[in-house]
Design a protein around this nucleic acid. Structure first.
Length: 343
DNA sequence: AAGACCCTCAACCGCCTCTGC
DNA sequence: TGCAGAGGCGGTTGAGGGTCT
């Protein structure tokens, strides 16, 4: 059944012929794609608009980078996936010339297996427990239904995988307000079998709250350790704007020293990254730029989430997420232990 | 040589969000 | 406010080529 955008038309499906490619390239080169649903008609193709869009984005676009993934790209995918999960489009933004589809395929056909072979859960990037390893290895044999997704095998049921996709609303704990939690708590949560899968989804829920609902309320003198950096740096974060420049400098240093730097460099608003490294704006300058000054960190309205700010340093929000998520992931064992000020 | 099996990846499906009316 | 269309995305499929037995 065709998509609603082309359900009334007789559309061709399957692989694209060179002639079709040529028509599509010619049309888009001369006229741009405009509204995709009108492209097939204008380009003289018996295809669905979505199919044209996909073909162009994933295969015909001139800025695509073809060929095998480099070691650095592979490392980048793993590192960003560790933070963002299966958000292929977001991951692909960190790899110029690569598409979400390409990254996804590479992950499923190559990286996932490598991680499992290394004893790592490809979903959580944590060590697999001993009882999971033989199950996953057995999955490579014909004795196991190989059509089952790896993660459903990890969790024994496929319904769990489906449920895990639902992002639960984040509910902050009212007690502590520390971002940096004892690693013991984290380890304790592992010992007591808290679900990393659910945890990661809750982090995504948290992220949604960051983006759309809340103001980040770090209390003063918190240290955020960017533990993914090769040379971990302790960043002094303060809601009193006492050391904003140090923050920018520290981030700059972190980026310079980290092989993750390129991966986390903001792609949508490169200028935000530059702004982040500049001396802080203060007072009226924030207001002039339409920023909200509540709390220690600031997130703009729902319709403009590209940029947040932190103690006077403007930060691309994705960069901030990228910087903070590993810390949360490493140091916070469960949502009960995570303090978050949503007011 | 041939069939079975495996792997890759282009393409599709269905769902979600956004936007305009 | 609700609806419909368009675009975007992640999960999945299946064709086709490669490898194994």
């Amino acid at each position: 059944m065709g998509h609603h955008c082309c359900s009334k038309q007789k559309v061709k499906r399957g692989l694209w012929s060179p002639e079709e490619d040529e028509k599509l390239i010619k049309h888009i080169t001369n006229h741009g794609h405009g509204c995709w649903s009108s492209v097939p008609k204008l380009a003289g193709l018996q295809r669905c608009g979505k199919s044209c869009r996909l073909r162009w984005i994933n295969y015909l676009r001139p800025d695509l980078r073809r060929g095998s993934f480099t070691e650095h790209e592979e490392r980048t995918i793993i590192d960003v996936h560790r933070i963002l999960g299966n958000r292929w489009a977001q991951i692909a933004k960190h790899l110029p010339g690569r598409t979400d589809n390409e990254v996804k395929n590479f992950w499923n056909s190559c990286i996932k297996k490598k991680l499992i072979a290394q004893g790592l859960d490809p979903n959580t990037h944590n060590l697999l427990s001993p009882h999971q390893i033989p199950i996953l290895n057995a999955n490579n044999s014909k004795n196991i239904d190989s059509t089952k997704p790896v993660f459903s095998i990890i969790n024994n049921t496929s319904t769990q995988t489906k449920d895990a996709k639902k992002v639960q609303p984040f509910r902050p704990h009212s007690d502590a307000n520390d971002l940096v939690m004892s690693h013991n708590l984290y380890e304790s949560s592992l010992t007591h079998g808290s679900s990393n899968l659910n945890y990661q989804d809750n982090i995504l829920g948290l992220k949604n709250d960051v983006r759309y609902q809340s103001t980040i309320g770090f209390s003063s003198q918190h240290l955020v350790e960017l533990e993914r950096a090769k040379m971990p740096i302790l960043l002094p974060l303060s809601s009193s704007s006492s050391q904003p420049l140090d923050f920018g400098t520290a981030v700059q240093s972190w980026v310079a020293n980290s092989d993750l730097g390129a991966a986390f460099e903001p792609t949508r608003r490169p200028e935000a990254y530059e702004e982040m490294l500049q001396p802080p704006m203060v007072g009226q300058e924030f207001v002039n730029k339409g920023l909200d000054l509540r709390g220690g960190g600031v997130v703009q309205s729902q319709t403009n989430v590209d940029m947040g700010s932190f103690d006077g340093c403007n930060i691309d929000l994705e960069f901030m997420e990228a910087a903070l998520m590993p810390t949360l992931y490493t140091n916070v064992g469960s949502l009960d232990q995570l303090a978050w000020d949503c007011n």
